[in-house]
């Protein structure tokens, strides 16, 4: 309906105006009321990394209680998860030498396994290359000569992979170094799954071969080795390494 202004009486105009006024105030209030509520934006559930008001340390992602094992993570296969022989002897005598700088260097690894517990395939080595270039290249350099970018920025230089000591070291030793660290190097078990750690070891063997093509290196897998579980079975959630 169209009303020309001439037909409006002053009275009804006022009534309408006050009605419009009321209405717009109501709309404003309603909008403000909704606008300042964030119930849907911030729901009472834990988004990853959200701070917890309930636990005293503020962490919403909880560690497993001590002494419990999550389903499927028993890690019964010692060789696969530690790279060590059955019943390793912690007191075993290791051979050492002293290098030019006066540091003691371990040269024998009696507790480490000498065969891959996973099948060595091209896929495994490719995966290893991929992972090596993420986690190791920054210090050990592209071919493992120990000249990565972080070393050039002042980090103590790691040994080259291409000396006799490491060429002859059993594969279990490399796995142990990645898992638990070695000297100045920290362990990477928290960020790299066990399957990927074996892939990296296979790639290091391939690097050693590439620098000494005539060499006969041990790339054999143990007879019981299953095909590698691969990245799909990598149920690594960032917290506890597997």
């Amino acid at each position: 309906m169209f009303l020309s202004s001439r037909q409006w009486t002053v009275d009804s105009g006022r009534r309408r105006k006050s009605l419009y006024c009321l209405l717009s105030v109501a709309v404003c209030l309603l909008a403000a009321g909704c606008g300042v509520r964030f119930d849907m934006q911030d729901q009472p559930r834990y988004k990853v990394y959200k701070k917890s008001e309930f636990f005293s340390d503020g962490l919403s992602s909880r560690d497993l209680p001590a002494g419990t094992v999550a389903r499927g993570l028993l890690k019964a296969d010692k060789a696969l998860y530690t790279g060590k022989i059955d019943n390793p002897n912690p007191n075993v005598q290791v051979e050492t030498t002293t290098n030019a700088a006066g540091n003691t260097i371990v040269t024998s690894f009696p507790n480490a396994i000498d065969e891959f517990p996973v099948a060595v395939t091209k896929e495994l080595i490719d995966r290893g290359q991929d992972r090596y270039n993420i986690y190791c290249i920054v210090c050990h350099g592209p071919v493992g000569a120990g000249d990565g970018m972080i070393v050039r920025r002042g980090f103590g230089a790691p040994p080259t992979y291409h000396d006799d000591r490491l060429r002859n070291a059993p594969v279990g030793h490399f796995f142990d170094v990645i898992t638990n660290g070695w000297g100045k190097m920290n362990g990477y078990a928290a960020s790299i799954s066990a399957a990927d750690r074996w892939a990296i070891v296979a790639y290091i063997r391939a690097l050693q071969l590439s620098q000494n093509p005539d060499e006969n290196l041990k790339m054999n897998a143990s007879p019981s080795a299953a095909p590698s579980p691969g990245p799909a079975a990598n149920n690594n959630t960032g917290g506890g390494g597997n």
Binding site: I134, Y135, V138, M149, I150, S191, G238
Partner: peptide, 14 residues
């Protein structure tokens, strides 16, 4: 320094 994203953001692929 050329550090890969995944060195720190480890779970981005999974």
């Amino acid at each position: 320094d050329g550090i890969d994203c995944r060195y720190c953001h480890t779970t981005v692929e999974t």
